[in-house]
Amino acid sequence: MSETTSLVAEVRERGGKGAARATRREDKIPAVIYGGKEEPLMVALDRNALTLTVNKGNFTSKLCTLDIKGKQHQVLPRDVQIHPVTDAPVHVDFLRVTAGTQISVMVPMVFTDHEASPGLKKGGVLNVVRHEVEFICRADSIPEKFTKSLAGLEIGDSIHISHIDLPDGVHPAIRNRDFTIATIAPPTTQEEVARPVAAAEAAPAAGAAVAAPGAAPGAAKAAPGAAKKAEPAKK
């Protein structure tokens, strides 16, 4: 069961773009609480407190207690909008939950015992296909994380969801296949990275004259057609 976070919020009256921007100018982050068969409630959170909580990680997989005018609201952060450049939170969606509510939640996967993996010792790389996996569980029993040991894994080995020990009442949202979570990939070699160059050189042979700039950037200077065309302009 993951720990819960607590934040203080205040109700905001006006919705929309202008009001949300005005809230941000006051060093607050607009948010909304919805669900639980109640009317949505627009709130504002303190910027610093929210940023610190979000930066701790796993914000959307921990229950949160919002203190609004002394009344406690049990919520689950469903979405955090992040500014594309600064990575600062811009808006948060909260879902009202009760203890028995079934929810889908993203749970982080953690890999341990890197030193005990012969594949990684040989220079292999842990290629994490899914850093987080979507699970369906009760709101009061959200797993904090799932840990998987890499001991004994060779290059080419994979970890699937069936290799993870799941507690009762927790099951993955994808149930129709045994999907991959991570693989031990071979190290990136010079041959591998040189492949795009070889592809670019092969392209003109395939009839694509457009690939010429990539293959020979200086070709235009020697192009007789270009000089011939430019000649009448000199007269």
Binding site: H83, P84, P213, G214, P217, A220, A226, A233
Partner: peptide, 28 residues
Amino acid sequence: PVSRKPAEVRMGSGKGAPEFWMCRVKPG
């Protein structure tokens, strides 16, 4: 594709020849 006109060529007479490839990158 980014095109360039050869050196010492007067303006006009069409667009230059493709010289290299680039990608437009936006902040973020």
